[in-house]
Design a binder for these strands. Structure first.
Lengths: 209, 209
DNA sequence: GGAGATGTTGACTGACCAGTCAATCTATTC
DNA sequence: GAATAGATTGACTGGTCAGTCAACATCTCC
């Protein structure tokens, strides 16, 4: 049957991808060998090249798979009719939950792609920018409807928001922040509370007394 | 004379370090060859190894030189008697100005060390953590004196603050944000305004209406 | 059951590059 | 000006590893 064959085939492909996540997370993309991935997956060296054209393509695949899910989520959230705070909260939630669900994969995506300005970060700059732009759009709308101050550049605000979240993940990745269930939830809340608190028009305190 | 000799010696050392900054920034630490550094500096290959034990040590030196200046600055700022907002503003200022003054060096530090969880980030974890801790201390003091809400974990707040700044630099590094004088200044202000706005006790707006 | 396609294997190769080292050059000192 | 120490050179080496490939295995379908 075709389905069985297809299933079996993609099983091994998936096996390799999952093994790659573990290996990349443990040793880093540059430090690991393709044979490490094959060993971790329990398959022969050559099979990696049967499913992927190069070591790079393995990482590309991992990144794009997950990043596109995130982009879709952000688009969906934005399309809904809810206050900015909730929209940003949903995005923060999604990212933190992604980490909670698969810390290795998020580590790889952040360390090897999102922040790798000279390698994969450049390759996937378009995808990465897309995320920032979508968040900026949310900020712009909030400014237009008056819930966010409009003297703050939306692009910069989006970067600050995204950067704050990514730094939380970085804290967990480096083992600098406690990574239990409660802290995951508090982190979501903190980012939204902090960033929205500073951007909302309801804020009173200002630079001068 | 001894001074001349010493001067000449350290001249070449400096030459190599400066060349390394350019090369690391342009090609990335892993992608570049030691010969690229030597070529850029206009010295022979072997001379790099006369001054540095390994390629790694070159990056270590660059990182530590700059990072220690930053740690000192944060300590000085913290020791002074001024409102939190100004303290955090001074730190944001220092980091942004560091980028303005030498974007290549900051790019290298951030991309190759601060965010490299599997290589130099691990090696220098102590130094990196020190910076986060110092910022967290500032937040804790602000909470103690009542200017910051104390229901927010200081460690997390410090990460959010530092992450927001680093993401601004990342935006400039990737060419995703405008990098002119005015935007540098606005970025400092934005980060402080946003983060402090969300943390200060004077904030009014809250989750529920 | 056999032909063709697809999956799987792992030894091998060719390129690359960090680090070594012996030779040469330059300054310093007496 | 000879001796010593340090600076500078670049050809060479040894190890590493991404990617290839030819052989073998296992499906699918008639």
């Amino acid at each position: 049957m075709n389905a069985t064959r297809a299933k079996k085939s993609s099983d091994k492909r998936r096996l390799i991808l999952d093994a790659a996540v573990k290996v990349f997370a443990r040793q880093g993309f540059h430090a690991c060998r393709v044979s490490d991935i094959a060993d971790e997956a329990g398959v022969a060296y050559g099979l990696v090249y049967h499913y992927f054209a190069s070591k790079d393509k393995v990482l590309d695949t991992l990144f794009l798979e997950r990043w596109n899910v995130m982009l879709d989520t952000i688009r969906e959230v934005d399309a809904q009719d809810m206050p900015v705070r909730e929209k940003l909260g949903a995005i923060a939630s999604f990212i933190v939950d992604s980490y909670r669900h698969d810390p290795d994969l998020m580590k790889v995506i952040i360390v090897e792609v999102t922040r790798a300005a000279n390698s994969f970060g450049q390759t996937h700059l378009g995808q990465i920018r897309e995320a920032y732009d979508l968040i900026a759009q949310i900020v712009i709308k909030a400014q237009a409807e008056g819930s966010f101050k409009d003297d703050i550049d939306a692009g910069f605000a989006a970067m600050a928001f995204y950067g704050a979240i990514e730094q939380m993940l970085t804290g967990w990745i480096f083992g600098l922040l406690p990574a239990d269930e409660e802290h995951f939830e508090r982190a979501k809340w903190l980012v939204v509370e902090t960033v929205c608190g500073g951007l909302e028009t309801t804020t009173v305190g200002n630079t001068l007394p």
